[in-house]
Design a protein around this nucleic acid. Structure first.
Length: 771
DNA sequence: ATACTACGGGG
DNA sequence: CAGTACGTAGTAT
């Protein structure tokens, strides 16, 4: 019984060797595979034998073989080119692509270890329950008196650690006398780092989890290690932590001990307005996690106030605890996805849904002897991005506040459309069928004789899910039940991503026509649902893509409404064919609908979920965020838009008087590049440059806190860093017109307020335009 | 309308 | 290392 945690390759002499990192019941095992060589394919324009002869003469090519593969549903001859080393592939594919007789180079961009996993058929992350993985989280607090902490100057103050065997630690250079059982005082930061690394190794940790460790904890830890001239040897065989570029961000890789960063995982799994650790913790466990403001940390540390220091250390411990708890609840799904997609958990947990689907398809293509299409070039990607189609059904909502809202979600509509219509680029408008029976509203039809590739993969996922759900129904053991539940979740997640994949501009199996046809059929079915809902006496407040928001005017009791809703659900589901299913997604006592994609709902616990409305980013001033919050809350709790409008009018008046303190008007924006490199400097850059002349230190990475003042022409001209502005010197018009009003108008436009009215200039256009 | 620039998580 | 995100929203021109 083995669990593949990680895979990579190394060179043994001039030969590549795949390294497989397993955990068994006995412990770690590293297996090396030396009889697998890198390869890719080439297709010929005409003379495949001639092309073969030319390629055979290349230096780093160890052999060329003629083979038959399926391409877009048809058989074709290809050349399989075996290569000596993976690193030879990029240059070779360029050269071969440039040959006169060569049409295309295929499958030349798959990482070597991933290629091996696909070809050998091994499955990562098996038997995780039986073997029992050791999971540990860690978190760091660092000194940050200058705002953004700088690794070359600011030390790590403490490292907190928690594992699933119950060990909890905070290593800190302060706090000895506080009597905290998890606190271990250390002499130095160096000792702190050593203790942490030692603990991970001694306790044979298999999975390291963090919250944003990819872009904060690990990079910072690495920098502090360099500072102290120590090696961050957290991996197996003393392997160092490695930072890899993943798009614009980093991924922190620990060889043989997969690091799973819960932040990207949560971003994929939940739909939340914010993804701070506390937000995710609340979402999962309904518990509020005490927070300490980053700006206060260095003061607490320097003050040596034992109470405050105790809170700070406790906070650090709670971060590691929370991260571990989140991980323990979400990792089973990550393991399951890793198994299904057959991608190691480090990569899988960081892949977006499009990449997940794609990797699954690459593996399934191998099994079916299908030649994998290439990724689009940047040019084609841009083309695809701009090419739109009549997408999902979205109707303008009935504007205003509504009570007792029921949400039905139609997500599994798309997978069942794909499988029942057999939608795929290998089946579209085939020669063997006429398509008269089943045409999509876009005019395309799909082969009724031969299964398409994606429908067959998707069909297998759906069938497997049905099987798992059946087992789930019979299973009594709660542990096995939860495993089965995770398995069906993973299958559902992948099945639901297939439609999006057809329209994903970077997809290898992208198909505009297929995506369009699926969307058109989706419109048809949801439209039918809405018509039937109306016929059953519901008021349809809003419908978007796969969901409908309904309410009943004549009933006010939650239970009555729920009963009627459930009955309607049954009625619809009885009429739907196959795996198609309308699902109950939620009940909301109150909600406000503004326009398409902009609404806020209050659930039964009084929690607000806001879509497309809030300005939470740091480049909005506090007064704007604050006023927006007040307006929303007033509308939802008092149902009184006049009261909400009055709040705005009050704030407008306050701004006009010059009475708003500067700190509430400050806008924060980061300098992301060298100051000289800006072609089109924004207000924060102009403000920073002006401040440089006054002796301030602004450079790449600094966050500029600035105010738009009265003196100057353009907005940039008038921007000054807050420390150089006198209280009251701000551009009231800017704050009213460019900050406050755009933000609150997003909400109040539903009530037919005009900007002028809110500014106190004109009259309200229509009073009580609804109920 | 288009180009450029920034946001997110973490302290 | 056979690999380089992403979708959205602001300002300036």
């Amino acid at each position: 019984m083995k669990c593949l945690l990680d895979a990579s390759y190394t060179l043994r002499g001039d030969k590549p060797a795949i390294r497989l990192f397993y955990k068994t019941r006995e412990g770690s095992e590293i297996k090396e595979v030396t009889d697998f060589s890198p390869y890719f394919y080439a297709t010929a324009k005409e003379d495949i034998a001639g092309l073969k002869k030319i390629i055979e003469k290349f230096d780093n090519v160890s052999g060329v073989e003629k083979q038959v593969r399926l391409d877009r549903g048809a058989e074709r001859e290809v050349l399989r080119i075996n290569v000596k080393q993976p690193r030879d592939v990029p240059s070779l594919r360029q050269e071969i692509k440039g040959l006169d007789g060569c049409e295309e180079v295929r499958e030349a961009d798959l990482p070597f270890a991933q290629r091996y996993i696909i070809d050998s058929g091994i499955i990562p992350m098996q038997h995780t329950k039986e073997i029992g993985l050791n999971v540990a989280s860690f978190d760091m607090e660092v000194y940050n008196a200058r705002g953004e902490p700088k690794a070359e100057k600011d030390p790590i103050l403490m490292i907190s650690y928690a594992d699933n065997e119950g060990l909890r630690r905070v290593w800190s250079t302060k706090g000895k006398k506080l009597g905290l059982d998890y606190l271990v005082e250390v002499e130095s930061e160096k000792e702190m780092i050593y203790k942490f690394i030692e603990t991970v190794r001694e306790r044979k940790i298999d999975i390291i989890v963090t919250y944003n460790g990819d872009n904060f904890d690990f990079p910072y830890l690495k920098d502090r290690c360099s500072f102290h001239n120590i090696t961050p040897s957290l991996g197996l065989n003393n392997a160092k932590v490695k930072l890899e570029r993943r798009g614009m961000n980093f991924g922190a890789r620990v060889r043989g001990r997969p690091h799973v960063d819960m932040y990207p995982v949560c971003r994929q799994l939940f739909n939340l307005p914010r993804y701070r650790l506390e937000d995710v913790y609340f979402e999962l466990f309904d518990q509020i996690k005490a927070d300490i403001k980053a700006a206060d940390m260095h003061r607490i540390w320097d003050s040596d106030d034992p109470v405050k220091l105790g809170e700070f250390i406790g906070y650090s411990m709670s971060d590691a605890d929370a991260t571990l708890r989140i991980a323990l609840s979400l990792l089973p799904l990550q393991y399951e996805l890793s198994r299904l997609i057959r991608l190691p958990v480090y990569e899988c947990s960081r892949s977006a849904s499009g990449q997940k689907v794609e990797h699954l398809l690459v593996g399934e293509a191998y099994k079916r002897n299908i030649l994998v299409p290439n990724k689009p070039s940047e040019r084609i990607f841009d083309e695809r991005k701009t090419k739109s189609y009549v997408g999902a059904y979205v109707v303008d909502p009935i504007k205003g506040v509504h009570d007792n809202i029921i949400l039905f979600d139609f997500r599994s509509l798309y997978p069942s459309i794909i499988t029942s219509y057999n939608i795929d680029c290998s089946t579209i408008d085939c020669d063997c069928c006429s398509g008269e029976r089943k045409k999509s509203p876009t005019g395309h039809y799909f082969c009724e004789k031969k299964d398409g590739f994606i429908p067959s993969v998707l069909g297998a996922l759906v069938a497997k899910r049905v099987e798992v759900k059946n087992k789930l129904g019979e299973e009594k053991d709660p542990q096995k039940k939860s495993l089965l539940n995770v398995e069906q979740q993973a299958l559902k997640l992948l099945a639901n991503s297939m439609y999006g994949y057809f329209g994903f501009p970077r997809a290898r199996w992208y198909s505009h026509e297929c995506a369009e046809a699926i969307a058109a059929l989706g419109r048809h079915y949801i439209h039918e649902t809405i018509i039937k809902a109306r016929a059953s006496g519901f008021r349809v407040i809003y419908g978007d893509t796969d969901s409908v928001y309904l309410t009943l005017d004549e009933l006010d009791l939650r239970d009555d409404i729920m009963r009627k809703a459930k009955n309607f659900l049954k009625e619809i589901n009885n009429m739907l064919p196959g795996d198609m299913e309308l699902e109950f997604e939620g009940f909301y006592p109150r909600g406000i609908f503004i326009t398409k994609k902009r609404y806020a709902l209050m659930d039964e616990h009084g929690m607000l979920s806001v879509k497309g409305l809030e300005t939470r980013r740091r480049d909005w001033s506090e007064i704007v965020k604050d006023t927006q919050r007040r307006v929303l809350n007033t509308l939802l709790s008092d149902k009184d838009h006049k009261k909400a409008a009055d709040i705005v009018k009050e704030v407008v008046a306050e701004i006009k008087e010059g009475a708003v303190p500067l700190e509430k008007l400050a806008i924060n924006t980061q300098i992301t590049r060298e100051l000289g490199d800006y072609v089109q400097p924004g207000p924060h850059i102009i403000a920073a440059k002006k401040a440089l002349r006054h002796g301030f230190d602004y450079k790449q990475g600094s966050i500029v806190t600035y105010i738009i003042t009265r003196k100057g022409d353009s907005i940039s001209d008038r921007a000054r860093v807050i420390d150089l502005v006198e209280e009251g010197d701000y551009d009231a018009d800017y704050y009213i017109n460019n900050q406050l009003l755009p933000a609150v108008m997003r909400i109040l436009e539903a009530f037919d307020y005009s900007e002028d009215e809110l500014k106190g200039l004109g009259k309200q256009m229509t009073l009580d335009s609804f109920r």
